[in-house]
């Protein structure tokens, strides 16, 4: 423990910092690339997992993307009954899309003219992968994880989202068994649009709550 450096964070607690960074040698740039292959091969050789398990997982990841989330948001915009059910119980409501939430529950939070919602996971990088795919790099960054809770407005500004002072920010630290989907404000000028048309306006970032939905540039494409 002699090489332990003690720092205090702003709450006065010790942060552990080790000057001894000796673990695996990582002098080779491909260390972790090879490590993934090595672990897979060893686990399959030992019969711990099967090659098909890995393939199944890869296929599942490939089948998940923000398109799922966009379809959900579009339906909520177009269908008030669905929106009501979605806000009351997200996990139940999205079953009609045949999307399983797996081992977490979905909470949908609605942006209004009074409230803006924003999602972060400070402790790791919990993210609703089943409906948004894998999280973007910035979502996993220490900067986003650190600052979103205590200076959300500054972080939003850095995303180009300048909120009016009278709009309250609701930050959701996704620290346990819920996963969050932001229901962004429906852009003006989209009356009568179909769900697929609306879905094109729903960006990933708008469903994390760092930006608004995309404004329609022109008349909807047909």
């Amino acid at each position: 423990m002699s090489d332990k450096q003690v720092e205090l964070n702003e709450h006065g607690h010790e942060l552990l910092a080790w000057s001894d960074d000796s673990r695996h040698d990582v002098d080779e740039a491909d260390h972790y690339v090879l490590m993934a292959d090595a672990i897979r091969d060893l686990l399959i050789e030992k019969g711990v997992i099967k090659a098909g398990d890995v393939r199944e997982q890869l296929e599942f990841m490939d089948s998940r993307s923000e398109d799922m989330g966009a379809r959900i948001v579009a339906r909520a915009w177009a269908n008030p009954d669905f929106k009501e059910r979605l806000l009351a119980n997200g996990t139940e409501a999205i079953k009609e899309f045949d999307i399983p939430m797996l081992d977490a529950e979905l909470v949908v939070v609605e942006n209004t003219n009074e409230f803006h919602n924003m999602v972060v996971c400070t402790l790791c990088s919990c993210y609703p992968r089943t409906i948004l795919g894998m999280p973007p790099d910035w979502y996993k960054s220490k900067t986003y994880r650190s600052r979103s809770v205590n200076e959300p407005r500054a972080v939003l500004k850095e995303f180009g989202t300048d909120l009016a002072d009278d709009v309250a920010v609701r930050v959701h630290d996704s620290n346990a068994d819920m996963r969050y989907l932001v229901l962004p404000l429906r852009p003006e000028g989209t009356d009568g649009w179909s769900e697929p048309e609306l879905a094109k306006l729903v960006s990933r970032d708008s469903m994390i709550g760092v930006s608004p939905a995309t404004e329609p540039a022109t008349e909807p494409e047909t």
């Binding site: 400070t122 900067t143 986003y144 850095e158």
Partner: peptide, 14 residues
Amino acid sequence: DIGGLPAGPMIIED
């Protein structure tokens, strides 16, 4: 456990 700790500007990359 880094919520609220000082950090630099957002680097918005993916």
